[in-house]
Design a protein around this nucleic acid. Structure first.
Lengths: 211, 211
DNA sequence: AGTGAATGTTGACGGCGGTAACATCAGGGT
DNA sequence: ACCCTGATGTTACCGCCGTCAACATTCACT
């Protein structure tokens, strides 16, 4: 007859996991410390032994979300088997965008949370610490290296790419494009990514990419 | 000796105005029915005679925000004095983007609220009802008409443009680019808008635009 | 065995959105 | 002139939330 132990044993972890679950189902605004505690079977104030406040918990979830986003993008990148250098670099850039949007659409709750608590990386030192922003920059540098992207166009390119892909994600996840059917969305995304690819390339010197 | 009248007289209007004020100062999440009522000098339940719930009030604010955004974009558009048709059409498209971002940066609270309660217009009938989306479409149609944009590239172009500009706004307003200094932001935006312009144009056939 | 730190519980406070019951007032029909 | 009805506002209440303080239990180390 073992009654419920006074100490949970792994409360912090359990809370974060429950939080991730809630956010996936109900979005960031559905995340409540008290309900979480209830779910995990612990009193409402117990969470404060592990998190300073609600925001700290949100940050922890954001970390998980970031890892998940990273994994998706990473896999997409790894799946590019093209060998011709220029085509490969272009394809890799496209795949970053595809992975980013895929994650946003597949996990809207986590995606939204991620951008209400973003660990502002652009300033962060952390050389080649893997985040989507670094991956994007690396892909663009590669485009310069293979001669596709004019070095003079390199500055600002990362912001342009990120803006386009992020905007597309946001409009689809919580914006006016919310209801779009998957095939339409795919078509629009393809058009967007090819548009970027074309906008970056030296004018008219390269064959088109078919996503 | 006139004591405070039992009836406010124009409560709905007063509430919306106070709400706009609060959102500008504290963002959408700072908007509380009760505080609003306090501000206007009325009991907290009075608001429910004019709004079904909090969300209805938010929608009313969103309408104001949309009007404001519209006005900014409209003015930018009207200020284009270029007469050469192609350059004019390209400049007009760019100015839509500039106006959009300007509004987002100048009124982050209203901008954010607008996109947590967007009146999904893409489906909406309302022929040529003036909203940014229609303006964008009109500008792109014009680009086709003057021969700058290949008709085959027209479908999807509006989503691409909107995504890029919206994404840039979001990243600057609530995202990781939040802290960017104004000159840097301007430079990045210019690069983004020129990139779009270039991506849309028939390859290599047109002179560059200097924003 | 004993003690201090870590972890969990109970109970309270104030703020929120929302509802119901009651109060006040304005305007129209007689 | 009167009254009644609907619109508008008020008070009081509910349950939810985040947060804190005081107290309880247990773990780990001496």
């Amino acid at each position: 007859m073992t009654r419920a132990p006074y100490h949970h044993g792994n409360l912090r972890e359990a809370l974060v996991e429950a939080a991730v679950e809630v956010v996936r189902e109900a979005g960031p605004e559905g995340l409540a410390l008290r309900e979480l505690a209830r779910r995990v079977g612990v009193s409402h104030a117990a969470a404060y032994r592990h998190f300073a406040d609600r925001e700290a918990l949100v940050d922890a979830v954001a970390e998980r979300a970031m890892d998940a986003l990273l994994a998706v993008v990473h896999d997409r990148l790894a799946a590019v088997d093209e060998t011709e250098p220029v085509a490969r670099a272009r394809r890799r850039l496209v795949q970053i965008g595809v992975g980013y949007v895929d994650f946003a659409v597949a996990e809207p709750g986590l995606f939204r949370l991620l951008f209400t608590a973003y660990p502002d990386p652009p300033e962060g030192k952390d050389p080649d610490g893997e985040d989507p922003y670094s991956m994007l920059n690396a892909a663009l540098d590669e485009l310069v290296a293979v001669g596709y992207l004019d070095p003079r166009d390199r500055p600002g390119a990362e912001v342009t790419c990120w803006s386009a892909v992020h905007g597309f994600s946001v409009l689809n996840v919580e914006g006016p494009l919310r209801g779009m059917a998957a095939p339409d969305r795919d078509a629009a995304l393809t058009s967007l990514l090819l548009g970027i690819d074309r906008g970056l390339g030296r004018r008219g010197e390269w064959p088109a990419l078919t996503r």
